[in-house]
């Protein structure tokens, strides 16, 4: 059982707090603009280490919730932090800060690359960046593989569900909805069944440690 069974870590243990929704907007804009190839690490450094708006525990707590909800993790994280300080206005300020400036930059790049791509060097550069993007995602997948080690489903069921999703998408090109709903309900049911078995085993006095 996690040490935070008594509920999410409070924001009260943070040394400082943002002065206004506008301060949130500025802070999230600045951290998003530093986030090349991933915002999470920058968010942790800016919000926890440098500005002191969140304790390390509160950051991990909120991120683990953000992770299991649909939607981009860092967007969910921004919204939760903003909401806890200033309600929906804070949530809106944090999300807008996270997305507005990077959105304008990436669209400007997309618009100019259509003209620039006529040059072979630019097409080559984009091809090289595409290969790096593929490598980054594959490395992220390998890193995520390590987090499954502690999964209560055990290695065989994890492999079954993971390979099932991979083959359904990469080989059969099935729509994501079928996979998330079909395999998701299967995985949920299997995990609930495993918890029941583990709980029953833990309840037996001869196994208690």
């Amino acid at each position: 059982m996690s040490p935070s069974a008594q509920g999410p870590a409070a924001l009260a243990d943070a040394p400082k707090r943002p002065a206004s929704p506008f301060a949130l907007f500025v802070a999230f804009s600045l951290l998003a603009l530093q986030g090349f190839g991933g915002v999470l690490a920058v968010a942790q450094r800016e919000l926890v280490d440098r500005r002191g708006w969140l304790s390390r525990e509160a950051f991990i707590e909120l991120y683990s919730i953000a992770q299991m909800l649909p939607g981009p993790n860092v967007v969910n994280l921004s919204l939760m932090i903003g909401d806890r300080y200033f309600g929906w206005r804070g949530a809106l300020a944090a999300i807008t800060g996270m997305l507005l400036a990077p959105f304008l930059i990436v669209i400007a790049l997309a618009a100019s690359h259509e003209r620039l791509a006529e040059f072979p060097a630019v097409a080559g550069a984009l091809r090289g960046m595409g290969a790096v993007a593929a490598g980054l995602i594959l490395a992220m997948a390998v890193k995520m593989l390590g987090t499954l080690r502690g999964n209560l489903l055990g290695p065989w069921l994890c492999a079954l569900l993971g390979l099932g999703a991979l083959v359904a998408i990469a080989v059969f090109r099935l729509p994501l909805a079928w996979i998330v709903i079909g395999l998701g309900v299967l995985g949920w049911g299997l995990a609930r069944w495993r918890i029941a078995i583990l709980d029953a085993r833990a309840a037996r006095p001869e196994d208690a440690s």
Binding site: L161, L166, G187, W188, R192
Partner: peptide, 19 residues
């Protein structure tokens, strides 16, 4: 807990498929 544990391997499979 069952929801997060059950979805985790599927998420990893999806990220491999993306790569």
């Amino acid at each position: 807990r069952a929801f997060t544990a059950g979805l985790a391997p599927i998420t990893v499979g999806l990220v491999f498929a993306t790569g």
